[in-house]
Design a binder for these strands. Structure first.
Lengths: 201, 201, 201, 201
DNA sequence: CATGAATGAGAGTTCATTCAT
DNA sequence: GATGAATGAACTCTCATTCAT
């Protein structure tokens, strides 16, 4: 009995995932350049050649991994995708992003390490700048709606705080309590967003 | 007649610097693994072999670069090295560290990108953990002296903020105004350090 | 359809032999250190990289060659492997060992030359000391059974004669008649083993 | 005061010896190819360049070492150089050669290891074949004078025994008692030379 | 769909030798 | 005589990628 088209598709999808997961694990543990296609294939239990049946190149594997990472974070952004961010949606996004990172720490270690590489950065910027600009617009609107007098400035500070928190979370050798961590960050956001200059500053 | 010891020393120091600077520029531009010793030598106008007269290996070149970076930042920490951090010393350190980064942005891009690589991270941690622990002690003392009720927690938040700010500074494609940036961060520190819980939180 | 497991095995075995034979020829002709992997590959008609598909390193190629040599000689020792050496077995071993060496002179030139190298000697001693001790025990027993009053002494003299003969055979620029050579050595053994002290000494 | 010609000569000779001794020690310990000119110079406490002031090349250093070795052994052969070897002279030579080897074991390890290398062998044969043939003639005469009926055969057996003994002495991991060792070998010679066929063979 | 043998360009590294000083 | 910086060719080894089967 020949397999149906649907069965073939299922097999293909499964293998793709297998390769991606294996590659991710190895990239995260040893770094991208220290990981060979041979290692990936062997650990995945398939042949070297087959990998190239599913991905054009080693870089293509990486690109796919990064893409999945980006989506994993931003699928929780503006949940109903109406282009309007409410405060609950904002908080949900923050908490979810930390949750996602904590749940798959190794991936995010890799993600950050890769994102810092000069060439990758350029590639990434080209691919995702469109989406990024969309996000920025929504956030600016969100800050304005929440009473920010200088939303660009506040966005900048918020981004700093958020990225810094991700970084700490990912590079710290000690494992931190997720809830405590997020609560701190949320408190930081509240202070920035709700801040009014008073006489004590 | 052979050159004098002093002449040899001068040559060696100059060449070492030349190699380090060239390597840094290339590492920063193309990444560590994408840069070959051949490229470094060619750009420095010397032979490949000579590089190994000055550095044991490519990794040794990197290690030296990282060491210089670490020192460049931390020479401004606790300026009089008395183990006691005053608030002015703290502020001086923060402002200086941003200044140092801004002045040599390419280096610091590399520095951060390298620091994220799994293997490097381990090497680095082993080499610098001692110094780091010293720093942490001093900072804990500093926070306690400034009225912190939970200095470990506050240290954690401060570190997040600082590292995040460095990250943003270094990865942002737009060039930012240094003073504005530092002022913001300093304000963040003040809020964290001087913060008292009031009824509005 | 991929090749069958059997096909792959056949290919691997054939290529392995090809590489070993080629390497041996070159090592023997030019010496181990004067032979590069590139030369081996070129002479074998394959790519440099492929060599490393079959052997972990140049040293691994050498180790395999030495191992084969050791076995080639000692498979004729104590033919029925009962731990007891009869005189016919002894003579058979001597004659066979010379035969083996004469038949593949180049290999044995290399073998001896390699065995003298300081580093190799250590490696070899560690790998084969166990087997050697077994051999010594059997030979001591053999000499005792043949009336030796001081088997350690006689073993030493015999070993000297044998090793020296191998050495001469291998290093001599003139080609000697194998049978004549062996007969001489066998006579030497007889003189040593059957010697009875008489009044003329 | 400028140094006199004689002083310069003394310095040159001393330096030459220093380089030779140092090179020998390193060659013997690590092998010829594993020893660099840099190592030799550093261990000798001189500069790399100076080595080339005394020797044309690394190979020239080796050649000189080998030459000294050859002479060290054969200066004891046919002590009065009258072309006639008496039995006492023969015994003296054998005992002296073992003594020389035992006194400077490392050198002789190297010597044998080097002598086996294909290229070296050729060079050596060309340089010393003349001397060797002279030696052979004297030994044949010696054996004939001592009642040998087939001096070529006996020479061959004796040479085998001697070379084998040297080989064992040099490659054996255990240190042997020199006198015992020589006595064994001398006894072997006596057994071979004085052998008379009796009815038990 | 699947295999792994095979390639070839290029990496890091070593080192005998040269040469300006 | 003496130095060691400098060279450049050669080395061992790696690995992304191809392709016959």
């Amino acid at each position: 009995m020949p397999r149906s088209v649907r069965q073939y598709e299922a097999i293909r999808k499964e293998k793709r995932e297998l390769i991606l997961d294996t590659a991710l694990a190895l990239f995260a543990e040893n770094g991208f350049h220290q990981t060979s296609m041979e290692q990936i294939a062997r650990k995945a239990g398939i042949s070297k050649g087959l990998t190239y049946n599913y991905f054009e190149s080693k870089n293509a594997v990486l690109a796919e991994i990064l893409k999945k990472g980006f989506n994993a974070i931003y699928e929780h952004f503006d949940l109903n995708k109406d282009g309007l961010l409410t405060y609950p949606e904002f908080e949900f996004f923050i908490r979810q992003s930390f949750h996602v990172i904590c749940k798959n720490m190794n991936f995010w270690k890799l993600y950050f390490s890769i994102m810092m590489q000069p060439v990758v950065t350029e590639t990434y910027i080209q691919n995702y700048s469109e989406t990024s600009e969309e996000l920025i617009k929504i956030l600016i609107r969100f800050l304005t709606d929440n009473g920010s007098e200088n939303p660009a400035k506040d966005l900048f500070i918020i981004s700093s705080l958020l990225k810094g928190a991700y970084l700490i979370l990912v590079t710290s050798p000690v494992i931190m309590d997720e809830d405590l961590f997020v609560n701190y960050i949320m408190e930081g956001f509240q202070r920035i967003i709700n801040h009014k200059y008073n006489n004590d500053l």
